[in-house]
């Protein structure tokens, strides 16, 4: 929950966005560096690998694309990237009501910045709307865009700077676990989190990381069922007050 309101100035919003985004970004630093190293090692021409950073603008799919180049067919590359990024369809559906009062240019441009972290942060700031939401969204989107490119460049030019002994590879998992817990403020969401994790674990052997999607769908479905039961328990009085026909 941010401390922003309709009266917040642009400077306040940018400051708040950067302060909020910084701890969310830090765990992604080693991954950005690894992507930079992978571009150097890729069978793709180096400039195309570099261009993939702003064009694909999604770490996992970019990493898979540049790593598989040379060893997989063109179609496999495209399908793998598309499948890994298909979780964004769910983000798009979930966040769409927040764009209802936004201008057309933002409805077209905003989605370009919708990486995992931006979605998670906006999802957890439901109190924001209108101009403040737009400025906050663009500020955190710009922060992640600039910071990601900066550390991909570090990987490109000084890739071995981060020692393996720091074990920073687990940092993104810790960060996303924290963000998932922050979002699980109600019982149905807790059910969604637990079922999504369990089903993803059981379907890890599926190709192209499809287990991610299967787990996510299972979590959303379980959350919906839990929501029905939760509402029946919370609102029994409303049910009985309905006229019967």
């Amino acid at each position: 929950m941010t401390d922003l309101s309709e009266g917040s100035s642009l400077t306040d919003i940018i400051k708040r966005a950067c302060l909020d985004a910084f701890p969310v970004y830090v765990p992604a630093i080693p991954f950005a560096i690894v992507v930079g190293i992978a571009i150097n090692d890729s069978a793709m021409p180096r400039w195309v690998g570099i261009l993939s950073t702003p064009v694909i603008w999604a770490g996992s799919a970019q990493f898979a694309t540049i790593s598989l180049a040379g060893s997989a067919s063109w179609l496999t590359l495209v399908l793998t990237g598309a499948i890994i990024n298909s979780r964004h369809i769910m983000y798009s559906a979930a966040i769409s009501p927040r764009f209802a009062d936004q201008p057309r240019w933002f409805r077209w441009f905003g989605p370009y910045l919708l990486v995992d972290q931006v979605f998670a942060m906006i999802d957890q700031a439901p109190e924001l709307s209108g101009r403040v939401l737009r400025r906050y969204y663009l500020s955190i989107g710009a922060f992640f865009f600039v910071a990601w490119h900066l550390f991909v460049a570090v990987g490109l030019f000084a890739g071995t700077a981060v020692p393996d002994s720091w074990q920073l590879g687990a940092a993104p998992a810790i960060m996303f676990a924290g963000l998932a817990i922050f979002g699980a403020t109600r019982k149905p969401a807790v059910v969604a989190v637990v079922v999504a994790a369990g089903v993803s674990a059981l379907t890890l052997q599926l190709p192209n990381r499809l287990g991610l999607l299967v787990g996510a769908f299972a979590g959303v479905a379980a959350g919906w069922f839990a929501e029905q039961r939760y509402q029946q328990k919370v609102e029994p009085a409303d049910d009985t007050s309905e006229p019967t026909t």
Partner: peptide, 26 residues
């Protein structure tokens, strides 16, 4: 809306497991 409400926590949770496995299995 009720379905979409849990998309964020569910996808992030599944993402955690996928990252932990690093492209491998359990």
């Amino acid at each position: 809306t009720a379905v979409l409400r849990n998309v964020g926590p569910a996808v992030l949770s599944a993402l955690v497991v996928t990252i932990l496995a690093g492209g491998g299995d359990l």
